[in-house]
Design a protein around this nucleic acid. Structure first.
Lengths: 199, 199
DNA sequence: CTCCGCATATGACGATCGTCATAGCAAACC
DNA sequence: GGTTTGCTATGACGATCGTCATATGCGGAG
């Protein structure tokens, strides 16, 4: 009775595999990350892969995308709380900036990585990625709305923010430089501020 | 008599490999595309891979990225010629829109695909991707400048356009819908028009 | 204690990966 | 003619891939 399992969260080793998968996807992508890499990185036992993930690698990737999506969304939601329009941009960009620099531009977004390799025989991966993007957009749009951006505009602006930041992240990795992200952030902040009603 | 027989198909087997690699990278990514896939898709002879590409898969990928970069840059340069600021956005977006729809959202940007898997033991790939992005930015910035956007602003705006469109492309693949790209385009066009000197 | 079910250990399967060595063929040059 | 050069055919190498079958340990329920 000592181990209280929280609902939605499985064994330690299971969750470690999901987190490691998300971590490795950021650097090597979906096809570039082997099951053995996940085992090694997470320290999880190799024999229990198909016990925890009967759906194999696709299921693991799906949960990794979902995990990354929820994790980042929580950060956005917290940072957007009670801020102005420009701070909504910072909320989304801060995380990527840290990931890029700390990894020396070897890591990017796991959701993007999975999306650009998504096979037609694994539509669950694209669906999970779409769900992650969608949640980020919704959270950002709500934050922009609270900051005074008209609802009709907030949705389009949120899409713009997600797209521009994700794209800039890729460009930063290629150039091994944060400059593209900083330029995009400056433009996005101006855009968000100008979109506030009556401002 | 030297080139008559060869002219149709013999000599360009090498170029067909490069084009096929770029094509396949758009759908399956770098790690997801095997050398044998490139051979099959291009119809090129298998025995001459390492004759044409002594550097192996990395060299092929590098040239594929370069090819895709130049190909798209030519399209941007042509469409930007003598247009207004908003048409610079269309120039960059038209190609991706077509690729997305015709592939039923299975294909994206090969440069992005290679970048997000870029390994540390193959810095040439990141460099080739950075060069491609850089050329697109320069061409777009020049077009924006000709349309009346101040030089200092044109550069940042070009970065913004490339990042937002590439990011939107990824979101479209995940959602299997062009809506994100259309929304981003609308925002970008307004942004480009407003950036013309005198506004 | 026995029994059962969850978690893990271990080893292997066939397939595919990037890579390369060797041989062969045709055209081009002396 | 002979020889060199450019491209291709063929087969294989070791490694790694995702996957799974089987066996073992281990804790709670009867």
């Amino acid at each position: 009775m000592m181990n209280v399992i929280i609902a939605g969260m499985g064994t330690d080793s299971r969750e470690r595999m999901v987190r490691s998968a998300a971590y490795l996807f950021r650097e090597r992508g979906y096809s570039g990350t082997g099951f053995r890499d996940v085992i090694t990185h997470s320290g999880a036992p190799r024999g229990s892969i198909y016990h925890h993930f009967p759906g194999g690698k696709v299921q693991l990737a799906e949960e990794a995308v979902r995990y990354a999506g929820e994790f980042l969304n929580a950060g956005i939601a917290a940072a957007v709380e009670g801020g102005d329009a420009a701070s909504a941009v910072d909320a989304f960009v801060g995380w990527w900036r840290q990931v890029l620099i700390k990894s020396e531009f070897r890591a990017g977004c796991p959701v993007v990585a999975v999306t650009v390799e998504s096979h037609e025989d694994a539509p669950q991966l694209a669906a999970a990625a779409a769900a992650a993007f969608g949640r980020w957009q919704d959270t950002l749009a709500t934050g922009l709305g609270n900051a005074g951006v008209p609802d009709a505009r907030a949705g389009r602006l949120a899409t713009m923010i997600v797209a521009a930041v994700e794209g800039a992240t890729v460009m930063c990795r290629a150039r091994r430089d944060v400059a593209p992200l900083d330029e995009v952030v400056a433009e996005l902040k101006d855009l968000a501020r100008a979109a506030v009603a009556g401002a």
